[in-house]
Design a binder for these strands. Structure first.
Lengths: 335, 335
DNA sequence: GAAGTTATTGTAACCGATTACATTTCAGTG
DNA sequence: CACTGAAATGTAATCGGTTACAATAACTTC
């Protein structure tokens, strides 16, 4: 391995000078700099980052914890994060919890071990205490999911109002028996989207039938299975709001498996606007979150935290929008 | 920040003893160990990994470079890698090139800077020389894509024979005018799948019409656009083999946009078996690669390389299989 | 109880860079 | 030409652990 001393020796200078040339700090005569650069070239020298980082006590790495990297929603947020990160010379270490809660806390220790300068959580399901404790000491930003009553810096959409928007849309189309396939209720987004759904129903004078709210786990399969439950009813709902697109697509598949049609027989609304939502047939009407933007702002926030800059604002709520496609239809007949 | 000396002081021992307790090496009296552990607890001490790694000259981190993390094919391979990696105490640093070739070489320097002990490339599009040079000095494993004539440790399927298998299937169904939407021909997988297609055609006495082979770039959009070109022909092909599922789905969408049906009017075969291939309608007939397994074996290979173990075998070819679903149909009438 | 082992603990060098501080070089000035 | 201040360079401490080696303690054996 080529070390800085090897370069120094070859160029006939001290390691300090080499270091100065590399990092472009301090003053070095142009002649000397040339000699050094030449030696670096010749030896194909690459500074050992571990050593540098140890000395500077920073890693120029941030950790991003994702619940499911397979989901394009998260990978798109990730891209927003990466764009800003690399702009500022930061590398992104990815942690995929695969929806296993325990893995999350595993990743929390990475930051305590100084393998990363900060972290962005796209999932926050582990104990709030642990999280707040870590956030006291290290720069942490929550994106997409937030924790009620917590003062952690957060970037997200307003899941309650978004869900309300989705339900309002169905109600506006004349639907009255509307079912909801929720996300896991142990997770804030799951609860919030349910709450938004309930608010919309109540505000419009509709009742939320307990059986028409079923708890899913954000997977395609759960969407399929829960929809099958609804379909087994004597009077199935005329519309379904699923808490994410994967479950919405699962629901559509279930409906089709019963030889019913979407949207003619049953309308379906999803959430997230994953890539596939527009490709699927029928194309899924859904709530689009500004994924890239979410990632971008989260990273910018984290940069400020790591710099100890003053934050004008700690919680950001971004605008989502309802993307109307083909999976919903106005209710004509009574069921 | 709590350092090892703080623990040592509190427990009234030397740093060496503390270190021994932490890493469970050497002998320490159980009484002393207890004192140390207590101090660690009390101070909430976490060893600084940078320092440890610098001393040990290892990072316990591997780098995985992916062309597109949004593609479930790659994220599934990644899961295989992660499973084995974490089993052995390794962390996975993810690099997403977003299909930009230059980014790949950017990631290559990470390993030279000792930020990772080894790397697995799920894409190998940059200069072969650079790659071989790096591989001389550092542990590198290629997965999914391989480089012709290179002696790098590789795990992949046999793209040529797989593509032949796909084409043979269409030929077996009676198709004669078969088109191919290839991957980028600058990439080995792209070339190999094309070659397999050509071999199958020729072996079955069919001609490969030049216009019926179009070069795509693995995106949904390119599949759509190229299929539109085929559809503009006076005699469109009766079957299409796309070099990946995204393009296959794009092709199906194009076909449907012309009010034609899959598979009744045109049969389509994809490649990779991404999650969505089975959900899409019609469900796409495709070549399934053992993704998890690919990742697993790649990581096992890398572990051996990093350990300087003898490799019994450097190139692994895994079995793929043709998954027959709904997107193909036997040709009945002549077109 | 002395000699010989073995178990336990401590001291200090080391990993490879960065950087505060010290020293040398050099240009400019009176 | 001596003097001054700035520029260029060097020396050595430092980051926070690990570990080779040295020193000490504890235990056997005769």
């Amino acid at each position: 391995m080529v070390r800085i001393v090897d370069v120094a020796k070859m160029a006939n200078v001290s390691t300090a000078t080499v270091s100065r040339v590399i990092s472009n700090t301090g003053s070095v005569k142009s002649g000397t700099a040339e000699k050094v650069l030449e030696a670096i070239q010749k030896l194909n020298y690459q500074p050992n980052l571990l050593a540098r980082q140890l000395r500077r006590l920073e890693t120029k790495t941030i950790l991003v914890v994702v619940p499911d990297i397979t989901n394009t929603f998260f990978s798109n947020v990730l891209r927003g994060i990466e764009a800003i990160a690399s702009e500022h010379g930061y590398q992104v270490l990815l942690g995929d919890t695969e929806n296993i809660v325990e893995r999350e806390s595993g990743y929390l220790t990475i930051i305590r071990q100084k393998k990363a300068d900060g972290m962005i959580l796209l999932t926050a399901r582990s104990s709030q205490n642990l999280l707040e404790e870590i956030a006291q000491e290290y720069p942490v930003v929550l994106a997409c999911e937030y924790i009620e009553g917590s003062k952690l810096p957060t970037v997200s959409i307003d899941n309650i109002s978004s869900a309300r928007k989705a339900a309002d849309y169905l109600i506006g189309l004349g639907h009255k028996r509307i079912a909801h396939i929720s996300g896991p209720l142990g997770v804030v987004v799951g609860r919030d989207r349910l709450r938004g759904f309930q608010q919309a129903m109540i505000q419009n004078g509709l009742t939320v039938e307990p059986f028409l709210v079923q708890e899913g786990d954000f997977t395609f399969e759960s969407g399929f299975n829960l929809m099958m439950k609804f379909l087994a009813l004597e009077h199935p709902p005329t519309a379904v709001f699923a808490a994410n697109d994967e479950m919405a697509i699962g629901a559509v598949k279930a409906i089709k498996s019963k030889r019913l049609k979407v949207p003619e027989d049953i309308s379906v609304v999803g959430f997230d606007d994953i890539k596939f939502a527009s490709v699927f047939e029928p194309a899924i009407t859904t709530i689009a979150q500004p994924t890239f933007e979410l990632g971008k702002i989260a990273m910018e926030l984290l940069l400020k935290l790591m710099n100890n800059d003053e934050l004008e604002k700690k919680q950001y709520m971004l605008e989502d929008k309802l993307v109307v496609r083909e999976s919903c239809k106005a209710l004509e007949r009574e069921m």
